[in-house]
């Protein structure tokens, strides 16, 4: 086999493989516009009639609420978590990357330890703590910890610290000579220079909070406060009686925000900028 044949073979393999990997999502989408019986009939890839009404049915499937409510709730939580994470992790990262203070090494070790600490281990005691604070069945248990850098905060701080260390120190030293305060340096020099890293923190905070299920399951009880994930779960539990097509339709809609963000910022992810802060 010569070089050209090999290349064609490799290409063909990749195309088939990628299609195979994406097929479940394509199947989900096509299922969202099919009638119930057609989804589970072998051989029908495309619907005989495109039933867009599944989307309308799914939207109103939970009595008394629409998926619009769930989407608004999910957006509220995710946006608060993004704001809180960016606020708290950039401040801490600046201190670790640029400032000197007592116990710095010890605290950095603590940070690295929490990076490895499995969050699920804290499931029970956190629940007890938040219920004592009266945070159960409100968004506080989900969002307040983000303002204290406890929503994947260790990972975000680590990412930002690595990035800030790459910014030339001459920039801040010049500012010190000009009499800038530490806060001015942080705000006017460091923040503008680490936009890509801040962008990564915001992206991950949004996507991880959007897809989070366990915490939402624990801390939200009222259907009126449900997020998209919880709404879908409720729908899934009753789906035997309802149409699968409309469940698939809502599943597709629930993926739209994350998938849209991904495609808008795809180079950011696939070139490793999002995880390492540098183009690799």
């Amino acid at each position: 086999m010569n070089y050209k044949q090999k290349r064609i073979l490799k290409h063909a393999f990749l195309i088939v493989f990628t299609l195979l990997m994406l097929y479940p999502v394509i199947w989900l989408f096509l299922g969202s516009v099919k009638a119930n019986h057609e989804i589970f009939t072998p051989g029908n890839i495309f619907p005989s009639e495109w039933l867009w009404s599944n989307y309308k049915k799914g939207w109103n499937a939970i009595p008394g609420y629409t998926f619009g409510n769930f989407f608004i709730n999910s957006f509220k939580i995710s946006i608060l978590i993004v704001i809180g994470s960016v606020f708290s992790t950039t401040l801490a990262a600046y201190a670790f990357a640029r400032l000197e203070f007592p116990l710095k090494n010890f605290l950095f070790t603590v940070l690295m330890a929490t990076l490895m600490l499995p969050q699920q281990v804290l499931l029970v005691p956190r629940y007890v703590l938040y219920s004592r604070l009266g945070w159960v069945n409100s968004y506080k248990a989900l969002t307040v910890p983000a303002f204290a850098a406890q929503f994947s905060g260790a990972f975000f701080i680590y990412l930002l610290v690595q990035f800030i260390r790459g910014i030339p120190r001459e920039l801040d030293e010049a500012a010190v000579v000009d009499g800038c305060s530490q806060f001015r340096i942080f705000w006017n020099i460091i923040m503008p220079n680490c936009k890509p890293a801040i962008f990564s923190v915001a992206l991950f905070a949004f996507m991880w909070s959007w897809d989070d299920f366990l915490n939402q399951l624990l801390y939200i009880n009222d259907v009126g406060k449900y997020t998209v994930s919880l709404g879908l779960r409720l729908f899934l539990d009753n789906a035997a009686a309802v149409s699968w097509g409309s469940l698939f339709a809502m599943s597709i809609l629930s993926l739209v925000p994350v998938v849209t963000i991904f495609f808008l910022a795809q180079n950011f992810f696939v070139e490793g900028i999002a995880t390492t802060g540098v183009k690799g």
């Binding site: 401040l91 605290l107 406890q150």
Partner: peptide, 13 residues
Amino acid sequence: FLAPWLIGILFFT
């Protein structure tokens, strides 16, 4: 600068 994270680490972790 560290305060939000320190509070978080102490109370929530």
